[in-house]
Design a protein around this nucleic acid. Structure first.
Length: 155
DNA sequence: GCCAACGTTGGC
DNA sequence: GCCAACGTTGGC
């Protein structure tokens, strides 16, 4: 059992978009970074906890709690020449990119990036490290608990 | 729109 | 295997 933080641009797929989807679940397509892919392909398991994070938007931060809802499988967009995520170097018999389904459990209040940075107990979070660009990062048990505690506290 | 930081690519 | 150039991420 692991915990993760997964970034999504709300203009592409917001927490509300996921909640509007069947089973409150979406395939996490479009990851084109090997480290992030490896987390999905090799370390994620169904039921892992996910912090749903909005990035590249006016108010970046954690906006929901989710969970991993499938085992890894190939990201179909890599084979679609019309897709923004098309990868000509990937072959269907040897896919390069994998994804998991992510199911939103609960929309939370916004735990904003500035609030996260101001919380000393979250200082170790990878997402807060200077220059971090990874769209999927592991979260420790204690970071997970501390985030939940902050989400329950008033903003 | 700017720019820091980082990953990837490709020439050598 | 090195490393410069390039592209992308993502906060501000």
């Amino acid at each position: 059992m692991h915990y993760w933080l997964m970034k999504s641009e709300p203009s592409e797929c917001s927490v509300d978009d996921v909640l509007a989807s069947p089973k409150h679940s979406v395939p996490w397509f479009g990851v084109r970074n090997f480290q992030a892919r490896n987390f999905m392909r090799e370390q994620m398991a169904i039921g892992d906890g996910v912090l749903f994070y909005h990035s590249s938007c006016p108010e970046p931060g954690i906006v929901g709690l989710a969970e991993v809802a499938s085992t890894p499988y190939p990201d179909e967009t890599q084979f679609d020449p019309k897709s923004h995520y098309y990868d000509a170097a990937s072959r269907p018999d040897k896919p390069r990119w994998y994804l998991v389904d992510v199911k939103v459990i609960e929309k939370t209040r916004l735990l904003s990036l500035p609030e996260m940075r101001a919380a000393p107990q979250l200082a170790s979070m990878i997402v807060l490290r200077r220059g971090n660009r990874l769209s999927i990062t592991p979260v420790t048990d204690s970071e997970w608990k501390d985030v939940l505690r902050l989400l329950k506290a008033p903003g």
